[in-house]
Amino acid sequence: MASRVSKVSLLPKDIGSLSRTVPPALPGTLFVLGANGGMSVAPDADFLLLFGRNEPDVHVCVGAGDTCVSRRQGMIIRDSSRWVLHNTGKLPIRFPGSRLVLRGDRAQLPTGYTPLFVVSPRQEHLLEVRIAAPAPSSGPGNGVEACGDKTYEQGRRGLSPEERLVLVCLAQRYLRNDPQPQPLTWAQVAFELGELRPAERWSAKRAAHIVANVRKRLSKEDGVPGLLEEEVPQPVGNALNHNLITDLLVTTTITKSDLRKLEE
């Protein structure tokens, strides 16, 4: 019989998004990934996983540097046959969409990939969660989840290669788990893309025009809220781009693995 220690493993911070990358695992295995890495827990490990901003006090760090996030913001524990999220911190935790788990509340976690967001006054901090599903009946039948399982495939937004490049550059602080991420300025985007692809004559105006078209399209065709100036209170500031980036992260349209595009 495997020991408890062997049923709990660390995940490196460079593993990539759990929406696309997950090690083979027995059904019911819990994976949780934060800014500095994460952890996997077997369903029979009898282990309470803690997450929050103070890394020495928790198993998975989220919101490091943001004092609005509690040192121990929450925990995930196995209850009968389900993994359950408990919010023990001050801030609400948001599921994809608008569902909030408030302080003292709990919520069952679904099988598959679930991006969770700790909702701070300044920004939302991503905590990736995945629960391994049984292998398809037509598969090998060894009880191990196939890495190609993509729970949120249908929710991903359609982007052209050019749009994806600009948006990954714009959102790179979010993808790199900056403690207090903000979109890059248009000048910064233009400079970085100009350095990456000097023959394409990148300018701040060109980058802004591409992103504005994406916001308009997703607002009209996908009904994504908060992407148009008339939908957010003044002063607008970075709100439109922040809302766009949040949607792209929640739907796993862009993930950490896309950062490779800025290194090509």
Rank of each mutant, 00 (worst) to 15 (best):
L167T: 12
K7G: 03
P23Y: 11
D258M: 05
L91E: 09
L259G: 01
Q182I: 09
V58F: 05
G74A: 01
V118D: 04
V250C: 09
Q123H: 12
N243G: 02
L184G: 06
V232E: 08
E162S: 11
L159H: 09
E162F: 01
K220T: 12
T151E: 07
L127D: 01
R103M: 11
A239H: 04
A187M: 13
G155Y: 08
L165E: 05
P121H: 07
V58T: 07
T251L: 04
A35Q: 06
H125K: 11
L170F: 01
Q188R: 05
R201L: 06
V236A: 13
E230D: 12
V22Q: 13
H59E: 10
K261W: 12
A133Y: 02
A133H: 10
S98N: 03
D66N: 14
E192R: 15
F31S: 10
V129G: 11
T29P: 02
Q73K: 00
R157N: 10
P198W: 03
N142A: 05
P110D: 15
L116T: 02
A187Y: 13
S40A: 14
K7M: 12
L196F: 08
R103Y: 01
T21P: 00
A207W: 01
Y113W: 13
A199D: 08
Q73H: 15
L26D: 06
P12S: 12
G97I: 09
L248I: 04
A146V: 08
C169V: 00
L165G: 03
R130V: 06
V129M: 12
P92E: 04
G237F: 10
T21Q: 14
G16F: 08
V232G: 04
K220E: 14
L50K: 05
S19E: 13
